[in-house]
Design a protein around this nucleic acid. Structure first.
Length: 290
DNA sequence: AAAGCTTTCAACCGCAACCTT
DNA sequence: AAAGGTTGCGGTTGAAAGCTT
């Protein structure tokens, strides 16, 4: 049974403690305290960390600051075009499950990706949509051509010609200038083409490294397994400033692995992860939400 | 130069799931 | 079983920076 007076006092104390906690931006001094504590003692209970590190912050705030900003394995700076493609692609699979997406982008946080999506990518898709709605299609194509160096005809040819399409399409998607948004949003290709394009986005680099197996389109390990994974130990710090797929493909163990060993799709059950499964997941393309 | 508007992003909030007592 | 605590997540906010007029 709750004892009114005692509990009321307890609640009051909590409020007092809570009101004394700092909020808002972190000062360099606070950062230093948290970094020093974390590097000395490692991760534990966050409310204890907040207390023991001498911070007037709640544990939740400390956790957030550490995970999103202070962690030494964080990669900072702008997203590379490869990362952008990856985010777009993963968003088509996972939707707004930012932590799932972040887990596959080494050194990036869910918050960072979420912000990036909500500002840059969403905006770009809106822009492209409005261009698509423009009555002057030639104008819209002119503008788009700046974004996408491949015209509709190129893409259709790539898709139609099954014998040569893969290599040319791979060249397209691997290009730094490739922009899947304009391609998709402007209906330059149908869903079948989209399937091929995403396949190429995944397979392209594997072909480059000679690991593509016919009729068994495996996806690479995109997840930052470096910290937790016992099967694929990769040092995060080695990826900090220049993450690329090569790092993963150069790992002997990865090259011979099945996708389910590598990809970490917990929500896809135990089965092998083939393209069909991928496309089943892409039932709600993000631009349909806008 | 400055006012107003837009964009970016760090941080907060509320909720749900999980763990501990 | 239930209450309380912790952790993790996604949505949202608001201050600061950048841009435009």
């Amino acid at each position: 049974m709750r004892k009114p007076d005692l509990m009321a006092n307890k609640d009051r104390m909590k409020d007092i403690i809570k009101s004394k906690l700092r909020k808002g931006l972190w000062s360099p001094d606070e950062d230093e305290k948290l970094i020093r504590y974390m590097l000395t003692n490692g991760q534990g209970c966050w409310s204890d960390i907040a207390r023991n590190a001498g911070l007037q912050r709640c544990g939740k705030s400390c956790r957030l600051r550490w995970i999103n900003y202070l962690r030494p394995d964080l990669k900072r700076g702008a997203f590379s075009s490869q990362e952008q493609h990856l985010i777009f692609h993963l968003h088509s699979i996972f939707g707004n499950r930012w932590s799932q997406i972040a887990a596959r982008l080494p050194g990036r946080t869910d918050n960072e990706i979420k912000n990036f999506w909500n500002s840059t990518l969403k905006k770009r898709m809106k822009t492209n949509t409005s261009l698509n709605n423009s009555t002057d299609s030639s104008e819209s194509k002119d503008v788009l051509s700046g974004i996408m160096p491949f015209n509709e005809h190129d893409i259709m040819n790539m898709s139609m010609d099954s014998s040569s399409s893969i290599s040319s399409m791979q060249a397209m998607v691997l290009s730094d200038q490739f922009d899947p948004f304009s391609l998709l949003v402007n209906n330059h290709c149908d869903m079948t083409n989209v399937s091929e394009i995403f396949t190429c986005m995944e397979d392209g680099h594997q072909v480059n490294h000679g690991t593509l197996e016919e009729n068994n389109k495996m996806l690479p390990s995109l997840e930052s397994r470096s910290i937790e994974s016992d099967s694929v130990p990769i040092d995060v710090k080695s990826h900090n400033n220049h993450f690329n797929y090569d790092s993963f493909n150069n790992t002997d163990k990865i090259q011979g692995s099945k996708v389910e060993d590598l990809f970490g799709f917990s929500n896809h059950g135990q089965g092998e992860f083939y393209l069909e499964n991928l496309m089943q997941d892409i039932t709600s393309f993000p631009f349909l939400d806008f």
